[in-house]
């Protein structure tokens, strides 16, 4: 490098490196992918929560988001496809003092892991689920999934998807989750507060995060680079706290309703078990 960057100090370490396995960085996520931003928000929320690091475990499934557990310097496990929630359930039941966080993608949590998701919500397992939704299976070259909006083009729906999609907040709320929120990877501060709230919440708490996928979903649907997709979120997201999750569906190119939809208290699985046994 002959020239030098002006007014910038070159560094080797980041203040968050304490929480990261920095030997694995730079990570494999694409340039501009929202997953890194979401991981930053999670680490920041974890730092603010004051939780003991030895009492936090992160579980993730398969997919781009599945790599999150491997980049965090916390106890964690990279499970088989769709089985992040069952593993987390076992972890919580085996050691109820642990704060168990599931960070996984839409394809992992609501497609192959859909049954586990609704039943963990029904039982009100005391775990926090961070579901990163990029509307397709990014790691395997952008196939359509259950959250792909109707009409969206993916590598397995080249003429446009003709199926109606799942809305993750609606699914979670209908199954009985105690905390349901949705943000995009642009709403970093609100996302951080929301993750903090979800971590402190007793019961099944779900935070869905809409994230750009510039390489597959963005390219196939002519949404442009990650930067342009972030601008789209900026222009089209509407914050409606406490609104009905039934109205949180996402149309291709339409508005994205974000905010905290559900925040209620309910006895958890372990509470009910203690009471009855």
């Amino acid at each position: 490098m002959n020239e030098e960057l002006s007014n910038v100090l070159i560094s080797k370490e980041h203040p968050m490196d304490d929480y990261l396995r920095e030997d694995r960085l730079p990570h494999i996520w694409c340039s501009g992918c929202g997953l890194g931003t979401i991981l930053t928000s999670f680490v920041s929320a974890l730092q603010k929560s004051g939780l003991d690091r030895d009492k936090v475990a992160v579980v993730s499934g398969i997919g781009c988001t599945g790599r999150a557990a491997g980049y965090l310097y916390l106890d964690g496990f990279h499970t088989t496809h769709g089985r992040a929630i069952p593993f987390a359930t076992g972890l919580k039941l085996g050691n109820p003092e642990l704060k168990v966080v599931v960070i996984s993608g839409d394809g992992d949590l609501v497609a192959i892991g859909g049954n586990h998701f609704i039943h963990a919500a029904r039982r009100n397992m005391d775990i926090t689920v961070i579901c990163v939704n990029n509307f397709n299976y990014g790691m395997t070259s952008g196939q359509m999934g259950p959250t792909t909006p109707t009409g969206a083009r993916t590598s397995t729906s080249p003429y446009g998807n003709h199926e109606p999609p799942f809305s993750v907040p609606y699914l979670a709320a209908a199954s009985g989750a105690t905390y349901v929120a949705r943000w995009t990877s642009l709403h970093i501060r609100r996302l951080e507060d929301s993750i903090l709230e979800a971590l402190n919440k007793k019961g099944f708490s779900v935070v869905e995060i809409i994230s750009p996928c510039p390489t597959y979903y963005g390219k196939k649907n002519k949404m442009g680079s990650a930067l342009q997709q972030m601008k789209y979120y900026h222009e089209n997201s509407v914050i409606r706290h406490g609104s009905d999750p039934a109205e949180s569906g996402i149309d291709l190119g339409g508005e994205i309703v974000v905010g905290c939809f559900i925040n209620k208290d309910k006895p958890t699985f372990l509470d009910s078990q203690k009471r009855s046994v």
């Binding site: 980041h14 931003t37 930053t40």
Partner: peptide, 8 residues
């Protein structure tokens, strides 16, 4: 610092 996806 928050929006950088790369911790860079």
């Amino acid at each position: 610092e928050m929006i950088c996806p790369e911790f860079a």
